[in-house]
């Protein structure tokens, strides 16, 4: 018999792939990796609602599906509303004895555009109505599926096809929308950031988010070799550098309490992260310095919130 799980010290990770092989994500896709890990963390008893985007397109070309769990895609901006209906439907049918009592996790997944741009209204509504669901944003920092157009999650200084760097522009001239803070502002019980380079941390957070009573939000940085323009083998390294430089800190907000999950004594210079990626290739030393200041500012703000949170 084949092993049911792979052992990493004390940790067991199931060998079962809930996201089947044969999907059409780009070579070296960080989002595919994050999704694969998230699915392992969620397990079998789940219903997933998926927004239009890379994940949906790469996993469901008729008549094929990569999904080994029940999955529904309808549109781009309504995923939080669809999962609201799934959750309310299951609850009511159970209450009315029309289906057996069973714990099924309701999970919505979407990209950064589907979350922080076009889907933010439906998401805010679903948070506010207190549905019991986990929303996972797979953030690859632009509209990758349509060809790398900027979104509100694109970081300052990155070049995209609709905010290209040029003689008169640095590329993205706005700061990345803080979707995590927006989720947290709904006073939901669990909010977290994750990155597939930190595999166990990601799986732990997804599991936690699925199990918490009430809405939960997990924001996963998903390195994208195609849109960020780096060599495909660097996906895991880029994710590590995002955390080690502090541009994407790993933290949790549990019932309002902030906690950093990785807090290196000294952050690496942001240049180490930027220089590996074609989307930042145009930046001058001065501009990199400006980005460094922004990272420092944001990190200091976060640390203040952590310090202000009772242990």
């Amino acid at each position: 018999m084949k092993a049911q799980a792979v052992k990493f010290g004390e940790k067991l990770v199931p060998t079962k792939e809930f996201l089947a092989e044969g999907h059409s994500f780009c070579i070296g896709c960080g989002e595919a990796l994050a999704l694969r890990l998230a699915c392992k963390a969620l397990g079998k008893d789940v219903i997933i609602a998926n927004a239009t985007g890379c994940i949906e397109i790469c996993t469901s070309p008729l008549p094929f599906t990569s999904w080994r769990v029940p999955w529904i895609h309808t549109l781009f901006e309504n995923t939080a509303a669809v999962i609201s209906g799934v959750e309310a439907g299951l609850k009511t049918l159970t209450k009315k004895n029309k289906r057996p009592v069973r714990d099924i996790k309701c999970v919505a997944i979407a990209g950064d555009g589907g979350t922080s741009d076009i889907g933010i209204q439906a998401l805010s509504g679903a948070f506010e109505r207190n549905h019991e669901f986990l929303y996972i944003c797979f953030d690859n920092e632009a509209y990758m599926n349509t060809g790398v157009q900027r979104s509100s999650a694109t970081p300052y200084g990155a070049s995209t096809t609709t905010a290209p760097a040029g003689k008169f522009s640095i590329g993205q001239i706005t700061r990345k929308k803080n979707m995590v803070a927006i989720a947290a502002a709904h006073d939901i019980p669990y909010v977290a950031t994750a990155c597939p380079s930190y595999r166990f941390d990601l799986m732990k957070k997804v599991r936690k988010g699925a199990e918490v009573k009430g809405p939960a939000y997990v924001h996963i940085l998903s390195p994208c070799p195609t849109g960020w323009r780096y060599s495909t083998e660097l996906t895991v390294k880029i994710g590590q550098l995002a955390v080690q430089t502090g541009i994407f800190p790993l933290y949790e907000i549990e019932n309002g309490r902030y906690r950093l999950n990785a807090d290196p004594p000294k952050l690496k210079p942001i240049e180490e992260y930027l220089k590996l990626q074609g989307r930042y290739r145009h930046l001058t030393g001065e501009q990199i310095e400006r980005i460094q200041e922004m990272v420092n500012e944001d990190y200091a703000k976060l640390k203040k919130k952590v310090a202000a949170s009772p242990m």
Partner: peptide, 14 residues
């Protein structure tokens, strides 16, 4: 969202 919610609920048999 009103109709989207109905889709999700109908998809589980409500």
């Amino acid at each position: 969202s009103a109709l989207s919610t109905c889709l999700g609920a109908a998809a589980v048999g409500a």
